[in-house]
Computed example of a mutant assay.
Amino acid sequence: MTTTAPTSTAPTVDYGPSAVRAEPRGLGIASLVLGIVSILTGGGAVVGPIAGLALGIVSLSREPGNRTMAIWGIVLNAVVLGIAALAALGTIAVALFALPFAIL
């Protein structure tokens, strides 16, 4: 006894190329936006640049197609954090210099 596979008489429909899923770019964009906002606001708050730096570093590993924005976000946030650190050290130095005169 021989069995044969049933043949389909239904027409096949070609829907064209499948939709390519867009790569997520949210982390790199968020890092870049936080870096730009931090520079424009003078970097008064340190939380924004720290968050932007972390988002940029995470974006490098999770979003390889968004490397440029992530790197720019890291650079901008690092610059703001560096300026904030220098300002804090300068403030401490001036306060320590003025301390002997505050006792008088």
Rank of each mutant, 00 (worst) to 15 (best):
residue 1 M to C: 10
residue 3 T to N: 12
residue 9 T to W: 14
residue 9 T to A: 02
residue 12 T to G: 07
residue 13 V to M: 10
residue 14 D to A: 02
residue 14 D to P: 02
residue 17 P to T: 11
residue 17 P to K: 13
residue 17 P to D: 12
residue 20 V to I: 15
residue 22 A to K: 13
residue 22 A to F: 07
residue 27 L to E: 04
residue 27 L to T: 00
residue 31 S to R: 11
residue 31 S to T: 12
residue 32 L to D: 01
residue 33 V to I: 14
residue 35 G to F: 06
residue 35 G to A: 05
residue 36 I to G: 03
residue 40 L to H: 00
residue 40 L to E: 04
residue 41 T to R: 09
residue 42 G to F: 01
residue 49 P to E: 06
residue 49 P to R: 06
residue 50 I to D: 05
residue 50 I to R: 08
residue 52 G to P: 11
residue 55 L to A: 13
residue 56 G to H: 04
residue 57 I to D: 00
residue 58 V to K: 01
residue 58 V to M: 11
residue 60 L to M: 12
residue 62 R to I: 07
residue 62 R to T: 06
residue 63 E to S: 08
residue 65 G to T: 03
residue 66 N to I: 02
residue 67 R to N: 05
residue 68 T to Q: 11
residue 69 M to G: 15
residue 69 M to I: 07
residue 74 I to H: 03
residue 74 I to V: 11
residue 74 I to Y: 02
residue 76 L to K: 03
residue 77 N to R: 09
residue 77 N to W: 02
residue 80 V to H: 04
residue 81 L to A: 00
residue 86 L to P: 01
residue 86 L to H: 05
residue 87 A to Y: 03
residue 91 T to K: 03
residue 91 T to L: 08
residue 94 V to H: 10
residue 94 V to D: 13
residue 97 F to N: 00
residue 101 F to P: 01
residue 101 F to Q: 15
residue 101 F to N: 11
residue 103 I to K: 10
residue 104 L to Q: 02
residue 104 L to W: 05
